[in-house]
Design a protein around this nucleic acid. Structure first.
Length: 565
RNA sequence: UGGGGCAUCGGCAAGCGGUAAGCCACUGGAUUUUGAUUCCAGCAUUCCCAGGUUCGAAUCCUGGUGCCCCAGCCA
């Protein structure tokens, strides 16, 4: 522990170092006010979760606050549907903005007045050049730009034109307001950036009140300043914009927050850009924004990821400035860690082989039981019937198993978990050679998982369900959406959509769930030895259960010849 | 010589001139009615490279190399 700040040292990072130093100097009287500023033009994804965890986490740890602010400065792309989904996602992740919900559009009037101030100071001008002309006179990365013929318009003319822009006297694209900075700056952002454009579009909150809308660079610093943000945290690509952020606030002479940039999250085997996610949704490659294969917050939620697991993931990553692509398996581990503690255990056979226990009397029923969680007896117990016919999973049988396969094979023994040891005497196949039934005998002395004195312990333990008692359920197995680590990074110009994994969803129409399980539609389950599952929130009902596989259990059995039978 | 960033174990990531944290993965071994979980042990003489300063450098200086971002009236 660092006794100065009372912060656990393990969560230190460069942003916290900056904040610690600021507090040391009593900058901002020690306040820490951050903000999460999404544009409401799409659903939030796991990359946003990182930003949310950083911003809300900082506020929480430093006794400050974090604002939720919608950066709605472009009415052509933004919709109310997105603001409600974003609010829901932030809440679900476990964060609370309290009273501090804001919209950039609430500041449009102040932004306009500030713009007038800059015009009056001779620091902004109206440019009626065509968009093409502005682009070509901006110069290139290596050549400086050329000043616009409009650059030296009088202040009076600028004031008049700007006010007429606002009043809707000109069509879209006819002119813009530009900051007068430096057309030869090596930083392109400083070459007289556009502050306002004309857009006769209806805004989701201000309707038709405005027909000029501020650009990000002009708007963002003002938003931060108005709200008294102390640390304005954004991603690396805005580093080049910081001089502009600083320039605007300095010219305005208003409260000046500090912008700090960090490396955004990249995950392999998926895509994270809003454009690509939107395409996948619109072109029906997935079922919607909440498709369980998507890296959206709503997708993870539907799939069965928990908020705790996503927060753990973000904490584990840390915060830095190095571009990195994080392996999906890190995220998967985080859910396992969380779900191991929470999930109720139950047995479920996904791909059944019928097993007939020949020495078990036809009409005999035996009630067996197990705890719902092996390490948390308080969670209670469950019970199920043992009968002459049971199902086991095809993965747990091999016709010609290697010696290190602990499960069932011809003449081999295995324990039915919580029940008896059985021996496979006979294998029955159909005409195509597929195994359809096993005939086994059980050892009556091995009930309830007990091994009697003097008997050799059976290493293999498999899950099973009583055939006449099992409940039929649907199970959806998800795999990564793309077949390669970096689907968007094709050098050969290929389309990321060509790399969609055709096997990313496998539906098992009939799986056999342990009898008598009173499924809670909000709870997570571990299908013992298989993985963690969650009832699909949209398609699952008490009478018609549909389970999403959140993630498999870790499996140190390499699976040599896994699909053997 | 366009500008701005970044380079520390397989992957993240601390470190801020005093002699390489932590996490994940991995490898042993123990426990286990989930090949799960848990537990214990091991895991960078070295910090992109090359010089230099210093008693001492991952940390400072010089020169390289590699990767990322920027030319929307998008954010």
């Amino acid at each position: 522990m660092n006794t100065e700040t009372n912060q656990p040292t393990h969560i230190t990072n460069f942003i916290r170092n900056i904040i610690d130093a600021d507090i040391q100097l009593n900058k901002n009287e020690g306040r820490v006010i951050t903000r999460f500023p999404p544009e409401p033009n799409g659903f939030l994804h796991i990359g946003h979760a990182k930003s949310i965890c950083i911003n809300f986490g900082l506020a929480r740890d430093y006794g400050g606050r974090c604002h939720l602010r919608f950066d709605d400065t472009n009415p052509t792309k933004e919709e109310d549907e997105y603001v409600s989904s974003i609010k829901q996602d932030v809440k679900w992740l476990g964060f609370d903005w309290g009273e501090h919900l804001y919209f950039a559009s609430d500041y449009f009037t102040q932004m306009y007045e500030h713009a007038v101030t800059l015009v009056k100071k001779g620091l902004a001008y109206v440019d009626d050049s065509t968009p093409d002309a502005i682009r070509s006179s901006r110069g290139t990365l290596t050549e400086s730009g050329k000043e616009s013929p409009c650059r030296n318009r009088t202040i009076e003319d600028n004031l008049d034109l700007f006010s007429r822009m606002k009043n809707g006297e000109f069509p879209d694209g006819a002119m813009v307001l530009r900051a007068k900075i430096d057309m030869s700056s090596p930083n392109i952002n400083l070459r007289d950036p556009v502050m306002y454009r004309i857009l006769h579009a209806s805004h989701h909150r201000t309707g038709d009140r405005w027909c000029i809308y501020p650009m990000y660079d002009w708007a963002h610093g003002i938003e931060d300043s108005i709200e008294g943000i102390t640390h304005s945290i954004c991603t690396l690509e805005f580093e080049d914009h910081r001089p502009l952020y600083d320039w605007f606030l300095k010219q305005l002479g208003v409260y000046h927050p500090q912008q700090i940039e960090f490396a955004r999250l990249n995950l392999n085997y998926t895509v994270m850009s809003k454009r690509k996610l939107l395409e996948l949704v619109n072109e029906k490659h997935v079922s919607g924004w909440d498709d369980p294969r998507l890296p959206t917050i709503s997708g993870f939620r539907r799939r069965g990821y928990t908020p705790e697991s996503i927060r753990l993931f973000c904490d584990r990553l840390g915060v830095g400035k190095k571009d990195a692509i994080i392996d999906m398996s890190i995220l998967e581990d985080c859910v396992r860690e969380d779900l191991d503690v929470k999930a109720k255990r139950v047995m479920c056979v996904l791909d059944p082989i019928k097993v007939v226990i020949t020495n078990w009397p036809d009409d005999k029923l035996e009630e067996l039981g197990a705890s719902i969680h092996p390490k948390t007896p308080e969670m209670g117990r469950r019970s199920f019937m043992m009968t002459r016919e049971v199902y086991i999973d095809r993965d747990d049988f091999m016709l010609d198993p290697p010696k290190n396969f602990f499960r069932l094979g011809p003449k081999r023994q295995v324990r039915l978990k919580y029940a008896y040891v059985i021996t496979c005497d006979e294998v029955i196949k159909d005409t195509s050679g597929r195994v359809i039934e096993l005939r086994c005998t059980y050892d009556p002395e091995t009930g309830h998982g007990k091994t009697p004195e003097g008997k050799k312990k059976v290493k293999g333990i498999i899950h099973w369900v009583s055939a006449p008692h099992a409940q039929k359920v649907e199970v959806r197995l998800y795999d990564r959406l793309f077949d390669r680590p970096n689907p968007g990074g094709d050098q050969d110009g290929g389309d990321y959509k060509e790399h969609i994994n055709p096997h990313s969803l496998k539906v098992i129409g009939t799986a056999y769930l342990e009898q008598g399980t009173d499924i809670n539609l909000q709870a997570h389950y571990q299908f013992e030895r298989v993985g963690y599952f969650f009832p699909d929130p949209k398609d699952s009902t008490k009478d018609c259960l549909v389970f999403n596989r959140v993630v498999t259990l870790r499996d140190s059995w390499g699976g040599e010849g896994k699909q053997g039978a």
